[in-house]
Amino acid sequence: MTDVTNELTLNQTGGASAGDFIELLKPRVMSLVVFTGLAGIVLAPGHLHPFLAVVAVLCIAVGAGASGAINMWYDRDIDAVMSRTVKRPIPSGRVEPAEALGFGVTLSVLSVVVMGLAVNWAAASLLALTIGFYVFVYTMWLKRRTPQNIVIGGAAGAFPPMIGWAAVTGTIDPPSVLLFLLIFLWTPPHFWALALFRNGDYTRAGVPMMPVVAGAAATKRQMLVYTLILLPVAAAPFFVGIAGPVYLAVSAILGLMFVGCAVRVLRADDDGPARRMFGFSILYLFLLFAVMMGERLINGGWA
């Protein structure tokens, strides 16, 4: 694929606005990353000064946004041919590629350095690993080469609770790894639901998402498998002591609903169930972490 069309588009406009640079940060994606990073801080044993907790959350947010900006710089050619992404700042010509790259790299360095100096270097190292994994492993290596791109690359989105945990403890402990696994296993059914109803976009862009390479039927079967594996993993925080009985009940109910979504997708001949599963998957993860944090705060675990 050439960059000719993209470069012609880029030459059509003038300067970028502040809103364009905010859009480069992928704020919708960032919001979930920030929420799970905050969960790591709340659930970790020990205490972090509220000001430092805010700094840690901001560093996670900025680091995630910086990764998004670099991702948009690298993927500007395929973004220009996908209906979901064609209006992004770079393919629409509102931001020059070099500006986006410089913006992303600068924020990446600043987020890691501030995290290290203000909080601790264990959390900063995990943040650096997260940014590097998303940019180099997922965006530059896996995304255009394998249908397992989102399975392996999804690890980048699973690190924030570990970063938040390390901000408090300075360590990587088994409960934080469990939080990582929860998001890691949630990512394939979440993202493949999107890929099913955006299959045409990925086909035009030449991105080997699972529905493009293996077909819709095989993708739907794998989505069901992941939701079934997720059931015991989602319940595990109760058994390691970082969640209570309310969480256990909620995780069971939500987990069965998530499996039900996957079954409906498997049986469907249209995109409707996949769209609904994608929306529910976001609510599913949000509620799991919200209940964990709620129980922790109600029980006076973070004060």
Results as ranks from 00 to 15, higher is better:
A66I: 00
P245H: 10
A252F: 10
K26H: 03
A39E: 01
T130P: 05
S108N: 08
P175Y: 06
L52F: 14
P160K: 03
V240K: 10
H47V: 14
E23N: 15
L231G: 02
A262R: 01
E7C: 01
R94E: 09
I22A: 14
A122Q: 14
A98E: 14
L110V: 15
F180W: 08
R198L: 14
V177H: 06
A69T: 03
R275N: 10
L10W: 00
R198M: 13
V109G: 12
Y138T: 05
L38G: 00
A268I: 03
L24I: 05
V135A: 00
I163K: 00
A218P: 01
A100E: 04
I152A: 09
G200T: 12
L10K: 12
D173G: 10
T106D: 04
G37I: 00
R296A: 15
M292V: 10
T227C: 06
V55R: 05
L52R: 14
P174S: 13
F133R: 02
V151Q: 06
L228E: 02
A290R: 07
L283G: 12
I150K: 01
A100D: 05
L196Q: 03
M223D: 04
S281Q: 09
M115K: 07
T85N: 09
L101N: 07
F51P: 04
E99G: 06
N6D: 11
P232K: 04
F289S: 02
V55M: 09
T187E: 08
L24N: 02
A236H: 09
M115D: 07
E23K: 11
N11I: 07
V207L: 08
L230G: 09
V177N: 07
V33K: 03
W165Q: 13
P45M: 11
A249S: 11
S125Q: 11
F191R: 02
I152Q: 07
R28E: 06
P27Y: 03
G46M: 13
A252V: 12
C261I: 03
L288H: 01
H47T: 14
L196W: 00
V54Y: 13
L24Y: 02
G244L: 01
Q148F: 14
M115N: 06
A262S: 11
A268D: 05
L231S: 06
T219N: 02
R145H: 15
F289M: 08
G215E: 09
V168L: 11
V109H: 12
W302T: 15
I229F: 11
Q12I: 08
A290D: 07
G132C: 09
G244S: 07
F51N: 10
